[in-house]
Amino acid sequence: MSDPLVRLENVRFAYGERTILRDISLSIPRGKVVAIMGGSGCGKTTLLRLIGGQEKAVGGQVRVDGQDVATLGRDALYAMRRRMGMLFQFGALFTDMTVFDNVAFPLREHTELPAELINDLVLMKLHAVGLRGAARLMPGELSGGMARRVALARTIALDPMLLMYDEPFTGLDPISLGVIGQLIRRLNDALGASSVIVTHDIQESLQIVDYIYFISEGRVVAEGTPDEIRHTTDPFVHQFVHAEVDGPVPFHYPSDDYAAALTGGKA
């Protein structure tokens, strides 16, 4: 196989003083769907922002299609992002535009296509997510699951080579959740793209992805194919799969000594 589409090598990242990612190495092979799992606040969104070039790694390298993202100038970065699609956690639809105009937005911004062609393309994308009938609605009129599907249609408007999903399953009912999961898999294969899903929904991920990475405390702590993950004895993965409260992932946010804090020590 050719080299992977995305490769992170020993990536380190911090917001100011606070180190979020310590040492992450992973790769997303072409044509595959990869899940990155970890608890809330472990830096999953940050990881996607590093791949998209919205943040720059403090150490290590993020390579997308052979290019080191950190070294790209603004124009090269924008050229690269045109071939990427990112589905934001809450959809991030433009609230002042209709569903149709939202999906048409990337096409109108980046192509010189005539209006009839854009019309056809938008309807095709909306049809792919099953919402052609909602084209004239405003984002405020959509349910959470519908909004996410519209955002998905907008994400694939320019047929990207890399699709990034930030917690696509959060806050959905079981049916919408299954629908989104199937769409992610289908679109990846139909577009010949590669996908990365950032999530903490292990059951859904096990069904649709090709490979899974687990992140904790800024490091990759486990990885494997869904089959390997199901049968692993790794304590971290075990805690995750069985939703245990305490284990390798601590219940407490890092803090001072509890007793000292209660007896009037510096909080």
Partner: peptide, 18 residues
């Protein structure tokens, strides 16, 4: 400000639109 809160600005930036 609300576009920023709802990540519309970040989404736009990710779509290579300044």
């Amino acid at each position: 400000g609300l576009m920023k809160v709802t990540e519309q600005l970040k989404a736009m930036d990710m779509m290579a639109v300044s």
